[in-house]
Design a protein around this nucleic acid. Sequence first.
DNA 1: CGTTGTGAAATGATTCACAGCT
DNA 2: AGCTGTGAATCATTTCACAACG
Lengths: 221, 221
Amino acid sequence: MTTPPRNKIPRPTVKRLSLYLRELETRTELEQQTISSKQLGHALGLTDAQVRKDLAYFGQFGHPGIGYQVSELTGRLRQILRTDRTWNTAIVGAGRVGSALMAYERFHHKGFEIVAVFDSDPAVIGREIAGHRVRPMTDLPDLVKQRDIMLGIVTVPADAAQAVADALIDAGVPGILNFAPVRLEVRDAVSIASVDFSVSLEQLAFQVSLGLTGSLDDERE
Amino acid sequence: MTTPPRNKIPRPTVKRLSLYLRELETRTELEQQTISSKQLGHALGLTDAQVRKDLAYFGQFGHPGIGYQVSELTGRLRQILRTDRTWNTAIVGAGRVGSALMAYERFHHKGFEIVAVFDSDPAVIGREIAGHRVRPMTDLPDLVKQRDIMLGIVTVPADAAQAVADALIDAGVPGILNFAPVRLEVRDAVSIASVDFSVSLEQLAFQVSLGLTGSLDDERE
DNA sequence: CGTTGTGAAATGATTCACAGCT
DNA sequence: AGCTGTGAATCATTTCACAACG
């Protein structure tokens, strides 16, 4: 009941919510008090109607003639996205990508707390990276419970990713962010998001190709 | 004319093309000769019709009664995505994320060659990371020309990202993959793709929240 | 005024269903 | 029998356009 009249939320809307929040945080730093759907849309390359429609799914918190109050809307978006609380998060895979994420301060700022790090390689187990002690995989089930870990970040090689995901899920972790270039097969109650650097570059290369040869409608980002 | 009858390609289709290719590469390793739209769709959580429709935008290369020849379709997808050639790529920002990407072998495998690395910090300029010498930003314009750099990866802090993007664009780089948590403002001829770790985690957290409280149609990945 | 919230219309994407090929 | 390619139907998302509000 945190988000009272919730109906069907389009997928693309949820994606944009994060971007609205990101932009609002910038505006807050600039001490901006209010923002109109037109301004917000312009900043993200969207129409004003799009912005209003997206926000209207969650209630009415704009002020006609004025726009949206930056602080109010920021708070509301955090509630909606549930980042007004802390999400205890584990990283599995203490390689280069995992290590980069351990040191990524923005996670803390956004409500994601890295509370455990795991790896299977005896050479790295026990080491401390960016203030995090690397634990063996065997510690995973207990630590997930003890530390109430809700999100797992998988930064292991592709051929180990499914086994790691299974371990996380068996331990009760309901959400996985996957950096390995494979599709994880999981049951319905588990949520997956994924980041594949090569896929991103490939998408970019395709866009560039279109720009060089034929045309096409664009829409970047 | 590499892709003869190209009409309007839906955005989501292009995204899936990369995933098809990724799956096909796995199947190649397993020595699989042919694959049906049903098999390929199942592996990615899509319907068979979706797969066929996507591929049909680019021509007819399936074999009724048989499916698609893995090697043929792989080659065809590489042509379509233009990863049958090498894309010379620069990384700007030799921090943790940049360093992780320098060492990411998969890029080479996929046709992306890191041919230059830049940073503005005198403390890292001149150092060698994962076999790449870090250059000062002042070298950027010349090296982009000399090495025919077509893609730039931006892994600098948010407040430096726009300036870095401008530098890349001024040097003639037509595509930018942005890891900084800001929207880059660029002119139409330049393509942008972006990766924001915090946004990805936020999306995941939202999905998890829905799973715990209300329901909702899913569609993961 | 400028700006929101929202039905209605337009556009875009997916799924259906089946003819036709092997 | 098994599978592709595709028009037609359905479903989803975006844009339009305007009444209501401060």
